[in-house]
Each structure stands twice: as C-alpha cells, then as structure tokens.
C-alpha cells in the first residue's frame, strides 16, 4: 500500500492532476479498431497465409501501402488515466499489426509493434517503408 501511495504521489503533476497507470484496455472513445490479441493472429503463417484469409478474419485493414505489399491494422489501448480537471480522461498507446505480402498476396512477414510513434515513423523505422514524398 505504501508503495502504491508513493507511486500516486510520484505521478501527481504540479497542476493537481494525477496520472494513474491502468491495466491496458480498449475504450470506444479512442476511435480505433478493437484490439487484435495474439490469439487472433495465430492463423497468420509467413509464407502460407493469403491476403484473402487475413481480411476474412480481421476485416479491412487501417492502412495499405501504395504498392499493396504492406498492410497495417492499428488499435489503441488506454494505459493511463488522468484524474483531476479532466476526470476520467484516458490516453493510451498505439499497437500495429503490420503484414508484408508478396506479389501473389501471400504473407511473407508479420509483426506487432507497440509504439507511440505515428504511422509514418513506424513504417519507416520499423519496416523500412519508403514514402513517395520523402
């Protein structure tokens, strides 16, 4: 209990707000898709799973590269809430499931990344995607 109180005090801001970590969870207000847990990704096998099966199981992706060889699903989970003037306001962390496809539309690699970086940065640094305007 003492450790918990110390953590709360540590996270208190000078403005009187308290930032509390919470168990990561989905919140409708975040306007993102629902999360895709590891268990829902188990059917994806590199070198085997076709795009059609991925879409049939996970739905429309949130982003598709211009050449169609990378698709991304993104969801956000609340990890902290702010208690104070913005009572109950939550903010979270982005999660990407990125799937690389070959010319035949077969998954050749897939990976989940948790990051607060945006799409451009995540695709550039994590997946080596070259943006046309760069």
């Amino acid at each position: 209990m003492t450790k918990f109180l110390a953590l709360v005090l540590l996270l208190s801001s000078p403005q009187g707000c308290i930032i509390l970590p919470v168990i990561p969870h989905y919140d409708d207000s975040l306007d993102s898709r629902g999360w895709i847990p590891d268990s829902a990704q188990e059917f994806i096998k590199d070198g085997e799973t076709p795009l059609s099966e991925i879409l049939l199981r996970l739905g429309e992706p949130d982003w598709v590269a211009e050449d169609g060889r990378l698709i991304a699903y993104r969801w956000e989970l609340v990890q902290y809430i702010v208690v104070g003037p913005l009572v109950g306001a939550g903010f979270g962390r982005g999660h990407f499931l990125v799937i690389g496809l070959n010319d035949e539309g077969i998954c050749v690699k897939h990976r989940t990344v948790s990051t607060n970086a945006g799409l451009r940065e995540t695709m550039r640094y994590e997946f080596g995607h070259q943006w046309k305007d760069e």
């Binding site: 168990i23 829902a40 739905g59």
Partner: peptide, 11 residues
C-alpha cells in the same frame, strides 16, 4: 480503473 471491456476483433 481498467474496466473490463476487451472488444477484440472477431467474425
């Protein structure tokens, strides 16, 4: 504080 919603994607 976490609530209990999961909202995982499913068919």
């Amino acid at each position: 504080l976490a609530g209990c919603s999961t909202h995982d994607v499913h068919t």
